[in-house]
Computed example of a mutant assay.
Amino acid sequence: MVCMRSRLGMETYTPAQLNPQLILLAEWVRKEAFLHQMVQVPVWILFYVIQGQFQYQIGKHEGVAGPDDLLLCPPHTQFHRHMIRPSTFLIMNFNWFSPQGERIESDRQLVPSPVGKFVIQDMQRLASTYLHFQKLVDRIDSFALERRNFLLQDLWQLYTWEWDCAQRDLREQVDDPLMKRAEQLLRHHAMGRLSLKSISSELRLSAVQFTRRFKTVYGTSPTDYVTSLRLSKVRTLLLETQLTLNEIASQCGYENGLYLSRVFSQKMNISPSQYRQSHHL
């Protein structure tokens, strides 16, 4: 994924592209009332509701938050809340930085923007993330601080992935048999030697026509689509096997572990070794 430029001239990013730095992690259990009905702070606020219910208003977004809902409030934005039922929730204050080190303070730089209430469909994964956060709430050692940031980054990776899948499902409703055939070819050859030129020739399209048409249907270029397939398998092998990076590279279409590490770090904002270690909590 690459950053784009908004109509206002600002660079825009997916949440998965940004680097979070957690400032505060706290858990409240069966809280009966908020000490302040409105807060406005210079950092991002993330609520993960476990139990209970409360009303909220974040800028133009308002409603009722309940179990498994997540709420995101941008910096310098009024966050109104009123308890309906005693609630248990995690609260996180954090800063967000672009890959270039720019501090992100506006939701207008997020595409998609999760500001307000949003949900994660993978409830099992979300519950696992919550349990890991719970273990780290009271720890302030360097290991815990690093893992907190990783878990928060992983949450945004999951959110962006689910949003992308939902958009892809909508795009796949477009009736384009040739591009569906192209997607099947890419998926079939993704983990081996892949020539986009040969695939475009098989489809009787020029490379430019193939790329433009594929992106219209799937919202991403053929190259980026193959990369996403490969990195999905790489992540699985990192977590479920003890294979070396060179061995993983050979199974995922990369020449060697060094090149795989470069691609993985660029796309995931974390090295393969850090990714593997961070999941072995």
Rank of each mutant, 00 (worst) to 15 (best):
residue 2 V to M: 14
residue 2 V to S: 13
residue 3 C to D: 12
residue 4 M to Y: 15
residue 8 L to T: 12
residue 9 G to Y: 06
residue 10 M to H: 13
residue 15 P to E: 02
residue 18 L to R: 02
residue 19 N to Q: 14
residue 20 P to W: 06
residue 25 L to S: 04
residue 31 K to E: 13
residue 33 A to Y: 14
residue 37 Q to R: 14
residue 40 Q to S: 08
residue 42 P to F: 01
residue 44 W to S: 01
residue 49 V to Y: 04
residue 49 V to G: 05
residue 49 V to C: 08
residue 53 Q to D: 07
residue 54 F to R: 03
residue 54 F to V: 04
residue 56 Y to D: 05
residue 60 K to T: 13
residue 61 H to N: 10
residue 62 E to F: 15
residue 64 V to C: 07
residue 66 G to S: 10
residue 70 L to V: 07
residue 71 L to G: 03
residue 77 T to L: 09
residue 79 F to N: 01
residue 81 R to F: 14
residue 87 S to E: 05
residue 87 S to I: 06
residue 90 L to I: 01
residue 92 M to L: 15
residue 96 W to C: 06
residue 98 S to K: 03
residue 98 S to W: 03
residue 98 S to M: 03
residue 102 E to L: 13
residue 105 E to M: 10
residue 108 R to V: 11
residue 109 Q to Y: 05
residue 109 Q to S: 09
residue 112 P to K: 00
residue 113 S to T: 13
residue 113 S to P: 11
residue 117 K to M: 14
residue 117 K to T: 10
residue 118 F to E: 02
residue 118 F to Y: 04
residue 121 Q to G: 14
residue 122 D to A: 00
residue 125 R to L: 10
residue 126 L to S: 00
residue 127 A to E: 11
residue 129 T to C: 12
residue 130 Y to A: 15
residue 133 F to L: 05
residue 135 K to S: 13
residue 137 V to K: 03
residue 138 D to H: 09
residue 140 I to C: 12
residue 141 D to L: 05
residue 142 S to A: 15
residue 145 L to H: 04
residue 145 L to R: 06
residue 148 R to D: 02
residue 157 Q to T: 02
residue 158 L to F: 03
residue 160 T to K: 00
residue 160 T to Y: 02
residue 164 D to S: 13
residue 169 D to N: 15
residue 170 L to M: 15
residue 170 L to S: 12
residue 171 R to S: 13
residue 172 E to H: 06
residue 172 E to F: 05
residue 173 Q to P: 10
residue 173 Q to N: 13
residue 173 Q to I: 14
residue 174 V to F: 09
residue 175 D to R: 07
residue 176 D to N: 08
residue 177 P to D: 01
residue 177 P to Y: 00
residue 180 K to V: 12
residue 181 R to S: 15
residue 184 Q to T: 14
residue 187 R to S: 14
residue 187 R to P: 10
residue 190 A to N: 06
residue 191 M to T: 10
residue 191 M to E: 11
residue 192 G to M: 06
residue 195 S to G: 09
residue 198 S to V: 11
residue 199 I to W: 10
residue 202 E to N: 12
residue 204 R to I: 06
residue 209 Q to F: 09
residue 211 T to R: 05
residue 211 T to L: 08
residue 218 Y to H: 01
residue 221 S to M: 04
residue 225 Y to I: 01
residue 228 S to I: 04
residue 228 S to M: 09
residue 230 R to C: 02
residue 230 R to N: 04
residue 232 S to A: 14
residue 233 K to M: 15
residue 233 K to E: 11
residue 233 K to R: 15
residue 237 L to H: 04
residue 237 L to G: 00
residue 237 L to C: 00
residue 238 L to D: 02
residue 238 L to S: 03
residue 239 L to H: 07
residue 244 T to D: 07
residue 246 N to P: 07
residue 246 N to R: 09
residue 246 N to G: 06
residue 247 E to I: 09
residue 256 N to H: 02
residue 256 N to M: 04
residue 259 Y to N: 07
residue 260 L to G: 00
residue 261 S to W: 01
residue 261 S to E: 03
residue 265 S to G: 07
residue 268 M to N: 09
residue 271 S to N: 07
residue 271 S to Q: 05
residue 272 P to G: 01
residue 273 S to M: 14
residue 273 S to N: 14
residue 275 Y to S: 01
residue 277 Q to G: 11
residue 278 S to R: 09
residue 280 H to E: 13
residue 280 H to C: 12
residue 281 L to Y: 10
